[in-house]
Design a protein around this nucleic acid. Structure first.
Lengths: 201, 201
DNA sequence: CTAGAATCTAGTCACTGTCTAGAAATGTAG
DNA sequence: CTACATTTCTAGACAGTGACTAGATTCTAG
């Protein structure tokens, strides 16, 4: 912004690398992300990124953490602004999640890429933090009797799985020309109807 | 087996490359798949694979097609052996799908690699063929009134999305120590309960 | 038997991620 | 202000990769 002068010490290489990487990620995918090209675009030698990320995977992990933080913020905002009953709030959450998934598909892929990754605790922590509000919402719904009891977090898992699957189907382009929001709303309503306790069979 | 003699012409390089690639895929993931290493393991020069696959992506596409064919076979077998009512058959399908997804996670990732890939029509054809039987099952369920009408293939999409999401959640390791089959069964039953037409609200 | 096509080898190129040594800038006592 | 230590960046090197090319070898029609 204010300083276009190329100093020897860049100043905030780490942040700019991450920003540039995220920009590139959405356009070229994970495959087309090169540390050297990144360094070139930021205007720094090819070995410079190593000072801030010991590994390419470290850069990707940092990107994933950033993505989880942003996703968490958007989910929090959506749930904070949501009004109405339990179903309305749950649908608001689903919509926000799907919106993020369709807006940043490559980032999402990165965020949920590797399975265990026990070597990256900060990733799991960021993950838990991002889904704190939705988890609380579902727990509250169960406490209020909006959801059939049984195994409490098994139904939570079913809900999250469905929303995740919706996002995957939509980003996969298998939705055709249907409006996204109505598909998401309809699916969640259907699932909720099956989850709601019913007086008699 | 019968011929360990290394002839100049390998005989069936293409098939063996695919087999070796699929073996490697499950152990190292897509990232750790190298054309040169593949050629080395099969005992052939590094340029040989190019005769059968003009591109690395072509090799990956062929792998995906093979995977879709195998998935289709397993789904057909599961649905063919399934007995009982609509719900039982649908659950059989879901279980077979999840079993495949958990057994070959890297292959599945390849099969549904998020891209339009309009340049690979054989992939889309293989995809349609693999899901022919499940689609027919769902359509039959709708025709028999087992499923609430509305938009016919919107509910089909919801079902597929849920199953796909279940597979993603399970391969992601977020299932804990719960038994896979009961989670799958429970989720599908819940979803079906919501889909079934009910007399009154 | 003999062209011609199919198949494989070997060499090359640009590119990548990682590693190393050292230069340049910054920070910190004295 | 000076001298030293640390951080940050540069530059060069290395093995490995995917892609391309020319040419050797084998198979297969005619």
């Amino acid at each position: 912004m204010s300083e276009t002068i190329t100093r020897y010490h860049h100043g905030n290489l780490r942040a700019e690398l991450l920003a540039c990487a995220e920009r590139k990620l959405e356009s070229t995918g994970v495959q087309g992300l090169s540390l050297r090209e990144l360094a070139r675009e930021v205007g720094v030698s090819h070995g410079a990124p190593r000072q801030h990320f010991p590994d390419k995977q470290a850069l990707l992990d940092a990107l994933a953490v950033l993505g989880l933080q942003r996703l968490g913020s958007e989910l929090d905002a959506a749930l904070g602004a949501a009004e109405g009953d339990f179903a309305d709030r749950l649908i608001a959450f689903a919509r926000a999640y799907v919106r993020f998934a369709t807006t940043h598909p490559a980032l999402l892929e990165l965020m949920f890429a590797r399975k265990d990754r026990a070597d990256a605790p900060e990733l799991q922590e960021a993950n838990a933090r991002a889904f704190a509000a939705p988890s609380a919402l579902i727990a509250a719904g169960q406490a209020d009797g909006e959801i059939d009891g049984e195994d409490p977090d098994r139904v939570a898992m079913a809900l999250l799985a469905t929303i995740q699957g919706l996002a995957a189907v939509i980003t996969g382009g298998k939705i055709g020309d249907r409006p996204v929001d109505s598909v998401v709303t309809g699916t969640i309503e259907t699932l909720l109807r099956g989850l709601r306790p019913r007086p008699a069979a």
